[in-house]
Amino acid sequence: MKYIYDMHQTMLSHSLILVYEGEFTQEITKSVLAMAERNMDSSGEESSVKRKVFNVMVECLQNIVKHASELKDQDNPNHSAIFMIGKEDDHYIIISGNPIKNDVVPILQEKLDKINSLDRDGLKELYKSIIKNTEISEKGGAGLGFVDMARKSGNKLQFEFHEIDTEKSFFMLKSSIVRS
């Protein structure tokens, strides 16, 4: 049973206030959002910070929901993802990890590198050009979610890919939101 203690210690040492592992759906998204909102309300968080955290969480969670359905029809059922919220004295951390197809890795890498290379005004222009020129039917909203996460968090998006096998990689994404 030591793993329970270890897990608890891991959560404490990383200041994680919520960890969810498993299948992601819109219903789960709503539940996670409600829990996080209650936590922020009870700790008297500023409304501007609450809104930004909520915003980044939604894009993060809905990204996972979308990508989970892409992998669903494959033979390997192991496509569950992880979502975490960390709360430090001066910032919140929103973390996601989910399996993706290997051929998506370079595309994501390029999108995220581009987003991270832009300043506030650059992100605003990118947002406007994407929203004007894409159809929503394109899955993933052509990276609109990532652009919004970068804008609302006000920080660079941290990310890493971990190769699972010849077909899949685990995509880890971390954004932080300053508590003012």
Binding site: N55, V58, E59, Q62, T134, G145
Partner: peptide, 10 residues
């Protein structure tokens, strides 16, 4: 009060 990016397109 809030809208996500998928809604912004719509």
């Amino acid at each position: 009060e809030y809208f996500n990016t998928a809604s912004s397109k719509l």
